[in-house]
Design a binder for these strands. Structure first.
Lengths: 244, 244
DNA sequence: CGGGCGTTTGAACACCCTCAAGATGGGTGG
DNA sequence: CCACCCATCTTGAGGGTGTTCAAACGCCCG
């Protein structure tokens, strides 16, 4: 059980409820099948029948949808403590693919196990549903960004959100965070071309706001970025001031 | 109980599981507070504390987010049988607003009632989670559309999705459907300007694909639209051929 | 040393936006 | 019954944000 108590998922769920020992034990029982996936090799392909989800422990993953013309849209980026495919366990086909951005460690969870755990511990169930609701709120915010924000604001908002999410699981601070994403990932996430991502990043750097380089994001003017992006972390439902 | 058996929600959930009499009874017990809301007057404002959801019975609603500069992004359009605010019952603040597009009839559901119903009837709980998963899959598809599809394809895809959703609750056919949305609604939904929506609709009309006029959508070449939009309704998880 | 991946920059173009003006139609009050 | 108003729809012209195409550069790795 010791392995679970300080896992990133536990840490995240603690932002919502303090889980009891019994609930942690149920969570632990979900952790049978720990697996490694290699960077760049999809874990799940869209169209495949779903019925299984994952909890990410180590590394980064992106979930995306591919279109017939070859363009792709990254829907969300997952960091340690996040669920993968929770949305589609109940749907007949997975509506998207998962690509590990680096080598990752994840735990496989079957739909049946999950529903069983729900029945046993309502409070844990509520906590997991909270996490799922939060994930959806992030997708919604992402939608708003792509629909109504210019490239620079969109980029600023995305980097700030990532920073806040990582801070919740102890992987980021106000100064910045490590980030294995390439500019192509950013492009497919933000609905831009890679070329324009590059120009946008240069502009933000020259304005003294943030640097994205060598796998590291550094906030030079955190407040300035927040002002530019009009970033309000309320939708992340992380009450306390996590990033100072 | 008779009122529930043929409600649009029941009809929708039946696409997933056949509910028993006992489960229908629990669903019925959720239906205490039936209320009317007037077109154009928001039911919920973003920032307001959530804790309550609605089931839509009659009429259309859109859920949207407003930005400081006045632009708005419609995240989703709800039609009869859809939930409103299910995502945010567990979050501390509602992350968006709801505007009835016409006068509507909806039932208020408290978070506590919902969780109680979940505990009583696991199958009903699963059905409701299925509906929530399906809603999120639609938001994801919406995100992909805004991020990676041109205006005409985006429009075609949206109209086809609406048609399929309405067909599931008996309000649409292959020829078309009634639709109270204005071109401004379409613009805020698709992340376009109202002017460009107008041009896009004209173009689709002149290509003989679809007409949007006088509150009515008419598909002139349904298959042609499907081909243009590369519309694959798998993400809606409506197994049967509903729109023929 | 060659090859692949990621980054960087330039030039021309396209999609979509903004601004502006007019048309249409339903509702209200004189 | 007409005049007016407002919301919605429609169309034109010009401009901007972001795209595509192209080429080069640095770097890691086999």
């Amino acid at each position: 059980m010791t392995s679970v108590e300080h896992s990133p998922l536990t840490r995240k769920l603690s932002a919502f409820v303090a889980l009891t020992k019994a609930e942690l034990a149920v969570l632990d029982r979900l952790h049978k099948r720990r697996r490694i996936f290699r960077a760049g090799h999809d874990m799940v392909h869209q169209g495949q029948s779903a019925q299984t989800a994952f909890i990410l422990y180590e590394g980064w993953v992106c979930s995306y949808k591919l279109q017939a013309d070859g363009t792709r849209q990254i829907v969300d980026v997952q960091v340690p403590g996040d669920f993968l495919g929770l949305r589609s366990v109940l749907l007949r086909t997975s509506d998207h693919s998962f690509e590990p951005i680096v080598d990752i460690e994840a735990v496989e969870v079957r739909a049946s196990d999950l529903l069983e755990a729900f029945a046993q511990t309502p409070r844990l169930a509520t906590a997991i549903l909270w996490a799922a609701s939060r994930d959806e709120a992030m997708v919604v915010e992402h939608l708003v960004g792509i629909g109504r924000r210019d490239a620079d604001v969109r980029m600023a908002h995305f980097l700030l959100e990532l920073g806040a999410r990582l801070a919740l699981v102890g992987m980021g601070r106000a100064e910045g965070f490590d980030c294995p994403l390439t500019q192509y990932h950013l492009a497919d996430t933000l609905g831009l071309s890679a070329v324009h991502v590059n120009r946008t990043l240069r502009q933000l750097r020259e304005r003294g706001l943030v640097t994205f380089r060598d796998g590291h994001v550094r906030f030079h003017d955190h407040q300035g970025l927040v002002d530019l992006a009009e970033f309000d972390p309320a939708y992340l439902d992380q009450t306390g001031p996590l990033l100072t």
